[in-house]
Design a binder for these strands. Structure first.
Lengths: 336, 336
DNA sequence: CTGTTAGCGCGTTCAT
DNA sequence: ATGAACGCGCTAACAG
């Protein structure tokens, strides 16, 4: 590789100082139209690209953000990433993509590497537990958490949060089933450690209580948030509790698993069992029967997170804003 | 923000020179065990993070790569990204994620921003046409293209390429249908400009010719690579050519669209019409009937691309290696 | 409107 | 085994 062209080269060629070249590049300060044009021509001719590295060292900010997510091939996170990238790009920032692969050790490692890259801020979908997560956040220049509640007492109250209103979502889904006359509604609650799962369960319970029904603990089962996890858990639950007429599932993948379990068990959907999912991933509309589900604004989750993060960065101050996005019920064939 | 801790701070605190600190950090050169430990303790205590920015400026390489793809929320590209990120992380590199949103102008813009970030290399799934793409590649320090053929005469022969053997895939899929006795096999060929689409079409034709059948041009139709595109094109093709007994589709989304068209038209799959897809995205196994399809090693596509890119970077030389990955037929219910 | 000076934080000489 | 001086490419803060 031939040496990169530098400001010095441009300055020499144009017969001006480096400072003038810098001003032209950054559209800052006053430069006479004549010299501006002359310098610009040389920049174009030599295909000069200012070094972001050198600039970052001088200015103490990099114009880069970190995005830490468990797995980019999960369509939920992929949409979050798209929203984040879109806003970042529009605002002149670049994004480091970091998959943690659900491994806390790896999460710690990628955050450290982001610190060394001197990112201006980080959007996190973290799998770390409360003691560790606060330690991580403390060292970050700016950070926004997605779908995670923060303990306002114990830890930092100065970190932004963007999350779904999962309690409302759980209530919405359950209410829909109640409205259709269902009284024996099972719950596939997802991972026990999931914040979202807990909130959705709460919404489910509140809807039942509001209808003067008492939640039956034997109708609830935790499961991995996957098709297979849903299939196994649904099969077990339906065999143990044959009186159930409806199932509210942690997410669409679990719901698809439930659909498969029903096929195995010879239970027709929605005639014998109504099924409601969550997230409204593209898959939900394409399985048979198509899933009734709660639409989660995934793109907006990422977009809002970056907007909030940039606000922190520009004010040079962490803010504890909490943004809550609403979900929307989408009625399809699995629970008409 | 308090000022970052620097080597100078560590050096002062430890009563040694910055050079010694640097040696400890980089595990380079000889440092006595005693001072090494003392320095390391101070580094840990002060939570020192060496500035990658300053280091990059001094060493002239950044340990970062660019990944330019049309859309991260497309499951195909998401898997490619996962493979790329995984290998990059394992080799100590970070990845800038750049969505072009299928917009050539935006692709040019993100590549320019990657140049300014001084990435060590770029993996590209490009939508640029031959004159422009060569110009872009010329200015990149190292680059690998995914699923794109390069003109070895006209342009750079020094850029790596990783692609699927789509001709073989097209042949495989078509041969499967021929083996099952189908003679009237339609083709939903995807976008006319797609390299992959062209190769798959070629494979389809070769399989027919090898069976002494002449491809019927009225049995072939181009379409957008989406569910909706497939549905519209399949409906039209099946109405115009009712004698077709099988359909080979550009990808799984198009195949799902074909499934929907069949449902509309009252044609049973696979009894009245066999359907074969391509890619084997997770969706393929979950629709009804489950899709017979060609499994594309998407993760490997991204992983191999980064491996090849790092080879270029480490040899400080572009290499024109072309890696071809095989696809595999997965037989399911839509074409048993 | 333009130029000069002095770092940003680190690694790479070369000495010692 | 350790240190001093210089430079990576750019910009902030002052001059003029």
């Amino acid at each position: 590789m031939a040496r990169d062209v530098t400001v010095a080269d441009i300055a020499r060629e144009a017969g001006v100082s480096m400072m003038t070249v810098s001003r032209v590049i950054n559209h800052k300060g006053d430069v006479s139209a004549a010299t501006r044009q002359r310098v610009q021509e040389i920049i174009d001719r030599l295909n000069y690209r200012p070094s972001g590295i050198a600039r970052s060292l001088a200015t103490q900010h990099t114009g880069t953000l970190g995005l830490v997510i468990p797995d980019i091939s999960n369509p939920f996170f992929a949409d979050v990433a798209r929203g984040a990238e879109h806003i970042a790009y529009a605002e002149g920032y670049s994004i480091f993509l970091c998959n943690t692969e659900e491994d806390p050790q790896r999460e710690l490692a990628v955050v450290q590497s982001l610190e060394e890259k001197r990112v201006d801020g980080v959007v996190l979908i973290s799998r770390l537990q409360p003691p560790q997560i606060y330690d991580v956040l403390k060292h970050l220049p700016a950070a926004v958490l997605i779908n995670q509640r923060l303990d306002r007492k114990n830890g930092s109250t100065t970190v932004g949060t963007v999350r779904l209103d999962d309690a409302a979502g759980g209530q919405l889904a359950t209410q829909h089933l109640l409205d259709r006359g269902h009284r024996a509604i099972g719950l596939l609650a997802g991972p026990a450690t999931s914040f979202s799962g807990q909130a959705r369960s709460n919404g489910y319970q509140q809807a039942l209580l509001a209808a003067s029904l008492s939640p039956n603990p034997t109708w609830k089962s935790h499961c991995p948030p996957t098709v297979e996890g849903g299939q196994v858990a649904a099969r077990a639950l339906l065999l143990a509790q044959p009186q159930l007429t409806a199932l509210f599932c942690f997410n669409d993948l679990v719901a698809v698993g439930a659909l498969q379990a029903c096929a195995e068990l010879g239970r027709r959907v929605p005639e014998d069992l109504a099924v409601v999912g969550y997230d409204d991933v593209p898959l939900a509309a394409l399985v048979t029967p198509a899933l009734t589900t709660c639409h989660a604004p995934r793109y907006e989750l990422g977009a809002e997170a970056v907007r909030l993060l940039l606000e922190q960065i520009r004010n040079d101050a962490k803010v504890g804003t909490e943004i809550v996005l609403q979900v929307q019920l989408v009625v399809r064939a699995s629970a008409p």
